[in-house]
Every structure is written in C-alpha cells, then in structure tokens.
Simulated scan of single mutants.
Amino acid sequence: MNKIWSWIMLGALCALLSACASSSKHANQGVDLPPPDTTTASGAYEGGSDYRVGAQDLLEISVFGVQDLNRQARVNSNGQITLPLLGAVMAGGRTIPELEAELAKRYAEGFLQNPQVTIFVKEYTSQRVTLEGALKKPGIYPLTGKTTLLQAIAMAEGMAEMADLQGVILFRQVDGERKGAAFDIAAVRRGEMMDPQIYGDDIIVVEHSGSRSAFREFLRTVPAWALFLTL
C-alpha cells in the first residue's frame, strides 16, 4: 500500500513540475518591448495621436456619409495630398488628429455641414528599418505596413548561411536613450519567443556564427528573453 502511495505522490510531483515549466516557458512569450520615442516621427502608426505624417505615406481618407469623397492619397515629396473640392492640402508633419481636424474644417467652409473625417495610414513608407550583418541583402528598407522582426529579416531575403540564429540584436531609441535586445530567431519561429513589432529607425544586426565582435559581448549581458537594455 505504501509503495502504491509513493508512486501516486511521485506522479503528482512530476505533473506539478511539468506544469510549472510550461507556465514559465509561456510567461516569456509576452515580454513588453517599449515603442520608440513618440515625440518624433519615428515608429509605425498604430492609431496613436503622436505619429506625424511623412512623404510617401499612403493615407486612406473617409468622410462619413459622402462616399464620393472617400479615397486614398499618397503624400508627395513636398508633404502635400490632393483631395476633391479642397485641392492641395499640407499633410506632412501633422498628426492624424490634426489632419482630420484640418480637413473637417476646410470641408465645412462652404461644402459640408459638420463633416466627420477619418484618416487611416495604410502605408507609412516614410519609415525605414536598417538591417545589417549576416543577411543575404543587408540594407535600409521601407516599412510599408505593420512589420515584425521575422518579416523585416525576410525583406533582406533572410539570413546568410553563417548567421547566428541566437545572435540577432534589435536596437531602438527609447526615452532619449539607445537600447537593445537580443533575440533567438529559432525560438521566435517555434513560437517560444515573441516576434516583436519593428518601428521606423530601428536597427537590426545579425551576428555571424563564431564571431567575436562587440555585439557578441553585448549578447552575453542580455537576458535570454529579449529585455531592452540601455547601451
């Protein structure tokens, strides 16, 4: 009887340890990565009020109840968009709420009564991400939509043959300081590690396997689960 009870207790202990391990593993999936400084134009637009429109951004503009005024408009190199009834409108440098208010004001001046204007940034091509290191095509690429780390690497046609899957570093300007986080791409692909969103002005560096660079020393100091550290 005592032997049977011992086996039951052992089984329960194993199950408890397994559950704890599983909980710890999944707890690391939700690491909070701070977005870049919102006082500048950096960063992909997610509906926040601080993003400022830039050249080549594609805006989707809707005027409630007036289907003929709904359209997409690309911001030109001078920061302007062209809209029916209004002609050229300066959009560059304005936040989305500011531009919505300006369009509503101008439509109300002789065209519409209490117009409700909604703007969505469909492509924010004024934002760029830099990819360096062991990639097939390193370079500077535009962000034309919500982009994750894996998607950004794919823009550079993936990693080179000698890339270190555990040696991927993401650098970002946060609260006036340059910060960095290390990622294990193999773990990201398996879903064991978060695939963070990439913002404008981010820098992604992929280490070569076996290299002894300064980045390698940084990797030794970074926690295993991609917490941003000040550099």
Rank of each mutant, 00 (worst) to 15 (best):
N2K: 11
S6H: 01
A12E: 11
L13Y: 06
C14H: 06
L17G: 07
A19V: 09
S23Q: 13
S24P: 02
H26G: 07
H26C: 08
N28W: 02
G43P: 02
E46W: 11
G47K: 02
S49K: 11
V53I: 15
L58F: 06
L59T: 00
V63E: 08
V66H: 09
G79S: 09
L83H: 04
L83K: 00
L83Y: 08
L86I: 03
G87W: 00
A88M: 07
A91K: 04
R94I: 01
T95R: 00
E98D: 11
E100D: 00
L103E: 02
A104K: 02
A104W: 04
A104D: 01
K105F: 02
R106E: 07
L112C: 04
P115Q: 06
T118K: 12
T118A: 12
F120C: 04
K122Q: 07
Y124F: 12
V129Q: 00
V129E: 01
V129A: 03
L135K: 02
K136C: 05
K137E: 09
K137V: 08
Y141T: 07
G145C: 06
Q151H: 07
A152D: 04
L165D: 11
G167Y: 04
G167S: 08
F171V: 03
V174Y: 05
V174I: 15
D175M: 13
E177K: 15
A181I: 06
A181C: 06
I185N: 03
A187L: 10
V188I: 14
D195C: 14
Q197E: 12
D202M: 08
I203G: 06
S209M: 13
A214P: 00
R220H: 03
R220V: 09
L227R: 14
F228L: 09
